[in-house]
Structure formats: structure tokens, C-alpha cells
């Protein structure tokens, strides 16, 4: 088991660096760079072209005249000391400063969404599978179809519309009220945060919940048809023990591998919804950075996404190896 974890960790580190390299290069592939974008913006606002020497100077100051691979190593060189480069889009502010709080909030939102959607989808899935073809099963399955086919940003827009125009509330999205937006963490801020949380969580959880519900229902139905379930009943076990100990325990395994994939998906899934609901997550700066080829900022966000994917998969593999004895460690 230990060798299994160590081997997985080592391969994760290698994968991680490959991902940073690829994302750094890919961002620079389209013609132009962050400087030309910035220059275009300046020229548009002043109406006068910038002298070529100034542009050259800019490039040299930032080190953009060097080959991409050199820039890449300069970039990752700062990682150990927490330096992830700077963002020209955000007036040369360090990337770490821009993303610090947003990363925490994004991961928190992602994990909380996961817990909520799992916490509801699994019991619903078990109920629907054990009451196959009942009215509740049909209702839950229909709702899950709707949930799975409605993009959650659309739900967010619909919610905003209803909240503002129908219910006439003053809901304006966000995770904090105006006065707490940049305040340090206090009890009051936490309370305010907790008040803002339910709606984004509910909207974010919806899609994932519908999918998880469907997988859980289908898996459990599959397992309940197996011979060993009948054999467990033939032993004289209570139906509850047959369902939970013998069937659900196995039906849940594919969901464990799903969670590894779902974590980064949830985080990137917050991007559009964050713009609609004005949530301080990684989404808005990521979109802005990609538009302007602000490669340090965009690269760092991509790196965070890759990191969550790797950690999620690693955790899922370890939990799966522990929960399913058929999986070999070596």
C-alpha cells in the first residue's frame, strides 16, 4: 500500500510539471502576447500609437524577449518561494496575491458542493433503485433529467430574474455583502458569508447531483440483480443490511472514481456561474487572463486546476484501493 501511494505520488509530480509546461506554452501559441494586447488597449484609449522602442523596452523589462522555455523556467523557479509571477492585466500585482483568497473560496465552494450533491444524490439514488418503477422513482428520474440537461449558469440567470423581478428582493449575487468584501475574517464576516452561501451552492450542486443520482441508481440496480445479493438474503440477513452492506458498498465504487474527476470540473464549472452571480472565485480572473494572454495568471489557474485533478484522482485511487479488495496495489 505504501509503495503504491509513493509510486502514485511520484508519477503525479511528473504529470504536474508536464501540465504546467504544456499550459504555459499553449497560452502563448496564438499570435501576439500580453504586451501586444496591453499596447493595443493603450493605443485605443489614447488614440496614438506607442513608439516601437517603448514596446521593445516593455518586452525586455518583463523578459518576454527570451525564448519561451527560458521564460517557463524563470516562472517555475519562483514556485518554491510562493512566487507565481505577476499579472500585467492587474497592474503588475503578484499572481499569488490576486488568487490567494479566490483559490481558497473556489476550493471551498467545490468541496461543499460535492458534499451537498453527494449527500442528497446517494440517498435519493438508493431510494429510487430500491423502489424501482414507483411514483417517487419516476419523479426523481424526471427531475434528474431536467437537472442534467439544464446548464447551471442558466439556472443562475433564472434565479436572478425571479429574485429581482418576481420576488422583488435586493439579491445581487456575491458571497459577501458590500461592507465585508475586502474585510479581514471576523465572526460578522463569517456570518455574512454563511448567509450568501446557500444559493450558489444549490445552483452549483444541481447538475452534479443529477448526474450522481443517475449513476448511483443505475449501479445499485445492477448490483441488486447479482447472485450474491440473493445469496445474502438467503442467509436470513435483514433487507436493510442486504441493501447497505452488500449492495450499496459496491455500487458506490464508481462514484469514488467519479469524484476524482469531478473536483476540477466543479472548480472550472464555477467560472461562468461566478460571472453571473458575481462570486469571488478563480473564474473571473481566469477568463480575463485568457482573453489577454496574461500567461502567468492563466498558467497559474490552469496549474491549480491540474493540481486539484491530480490530488482528486490520487485520493480517489487510494480510497478505492482501500474499499475494493479486487484492486491490486502493485
Amino acid at each position: 500500500m505504501t509503495t503504491f501511494i509513493i509510486r502514485r505520488l511520484l508519477s503525479a509530480v511528473v504529470t504536474f510539471f508536464l501540465i504546467t509546461l504544456i499550459s504555459f506554452v499553449v497560452i502563448q501559441l496564438p499570435p501576439g502576447d500580453v504586451v501586444s494586447n496591453w499596447v493595443r488597449q493603450q493605443e485605443a484609449s489614447t488614440g496614438q500609437p506607442l513608439p516601437p522602442e517603448t514596446i521593445e523596452n516593455l518586452r525586455r523589462t518583463y523578459g518576454f524577449d527570451e525564448p519561451i522555455i527560458v521564460q517557463y523556467f524563470k516562472w517555475i523557479d519562483g514556485f518554491p518561494s510562493g512566487d507565481f509571477g505577476f499579472s500585467i492585466e492587474y497592474s503588475n500585482a503578484p499572481v499569488s496575491e490576486i488568487l490567494a483568497q479566490r483559490t481558497g473560496l473556489t476550493i471551498f465552494l467545490g468541496v461543499a458542493t460535492l458534499f451537498i450533491s453527494w449527500g442528497l444524490a446517494i440517498p435519493f439514488g438508493i431510494y429510487a433503485a430500491t423502489h424501482k418503477n414507483s411514483h417517487w422513482d419516476y419523479l426523481l428520474s424526471t427531475l434528474s433529467f431536467i437537472g442534467i440537461s439544464t446548464p447551471n449558469f442558466l439556472v443562475a440567470v433564472i434565479y436572478l430574474f425571479i429574485a429581482v423581478f418576481v420576488l422583488k428582493t435586493d439579491y445581487s449575487g456575491g458571497l459577501f455583502s458590500q461592507e465585508f468584501k475586502n474585510a479581514p475574517w471576523t465572526w460578522e464576516r463569517l456570518l455574512d458569508f454563511a448567509k450568501h452561501l446557500p444559493i450558489p451552492l444549490a445552483i452549483l450542486g444541481l447538475g452534479g447531483m443529477a448526474g450522481t443520482f443517475r449513476i448511483m441508481r443505475a449501479n445499485l440496480l445492477d448490483i441488486l440483480d447479482q447472485q450474491f445479493i440473493e445469496a445474502a438474503r438467503a442467509k436470513g440477513l435483514k433487507e436493510r443490511i442486504v441493501i447497505y452492506k452488500h449492495a450499496t458498498r459496491i455500487a458506490i465504487n464508481p462514484l469514488i472514481s467519479r469524484v476524482g474527476m469531478q473536483l476540477p470540473f466543479l472548480i472550472s464549472g464555477t467560472i461562468i456561474i461566478s460571472i453571473v452571480l458575481d462570486l469571488p472565485t478563480l473564474g473571473p480572473p481566469f477568463i480575463r487572463a485568457l482573453n489577454r494572454q496574461d500567461m502567468f495568471l492563466a498558467g497559474t489557474v490552469l496549474m491549480i486546476l491540474a493540481f486539484t485533478l491530480l490530488v482528486g484522482n490520487l485520493l480517489a485511487d487510494i480510497v478505492l484501493a482501500w474499499s475494493d479488495p479486487r484492486i491490486q496495489y502493485d
Binding site: 447479482q226 447472485q227 450474491f228 440473493e230 445469496a231 445474502a232 438467503a234 452488500h246 458498498r249 459496491i250 474499499s323 475494493d324 479488495p325 479486487r326
Partner: peptide, 13 residues
Amino acid sequence: MIFQEPMTSLNPV
């Protein structure tokens, strides 16, 4: 009772 399919009559986990 014992069943027809020994390969699937025992819970794998």
C-alpha cells in the same frame, strides 16, 4: 440454499 453461479454468489468486497 446454494446457487448456480459460484463465480457471482459471493460478495466480491
